Simulated scan of single mutants.
Amino acid sequence: MKFPHDAPQRKVLKTLEAFGFTIVRTGNHIALVRRNPDGTTTPLTMPNHPKLKGSTLRTICTQAGIPREEFLRVYERL
Rank of each mutant, 00 (worst) to 15 (best):
N28S: 15
N36T: 03
L16F: 06
C61D: 02
I66F: 06
P43R: 05
T41Q: 13
G20N: 09
P47G: 09
K2Y: 07
V33D: 02
T42W: 04
M46H: 01
I66G: 06
L16E: 05
A64H: 12
R25G: 01
T22V: 11
V24P: 01
V12W: 02
L78T: 08
Y75G: 11
C61I: 04
T56I: 13
I30K: 02
T15N: 08
R34C: 05
V24T: 15
G65T: 03
L57I: 06
I23K: 09
G20C: 05
K11M: 10
T45I: 15
E70T: 00
L16S: 04
F19E: 05
Q9Y: 07
I66Q: 02
M46T: 04
E76N: 15
P47F: 06
T15F: 07
T59D: 14
T62I: 14
E76V: 09
K51I: 03
P43K: 03
N28Q: 13
R25E: 12
T59Y: 05
D38W: 04
P4L: 14
K11D: 13
R10W: 07
V33Q: 09
I23M: 00
P67D: 02
E69R: 14
L16Q: 02
Y75P: 10
K51D: 07
G65M: 10
E17R: 14
G54L: 01
R34D: 00
R25C: 00
K51S: 08
Q9M: 14
L72K: 11
Y75K: 12
E17I: 09
R35K: 13
E70Q: 14
S55N: 09
R68A: 13
N28E: 14
T42A: 04
G39E: 03
Q63D: 07
G39D: 05
F21W: 10
H29N: 15
Q63I: 00
P47I: 09
L78P: 01
A18F: 07
I30C: 01
H49W: 04
E76T: 11
F19Q: 07
T15W: 06
T59C: 00
R35Y: 08
P8F: 05
R35E: 13
D6Y: 15
E17N: 12
T41P: 00
Y75R: 12
R73F: 06
K2D: 15
I66K: 03
F71S: 08
G20M: 07
C61S: 08
P43T: 04
V33E: 13
R10S: 12
K53R: 15
F71E: 08
H29V: 12
T56Q: 14
A64Q: 11
I30H: 06
V74G: 02
K2W: 04
M46G: 01
Y75L: 12
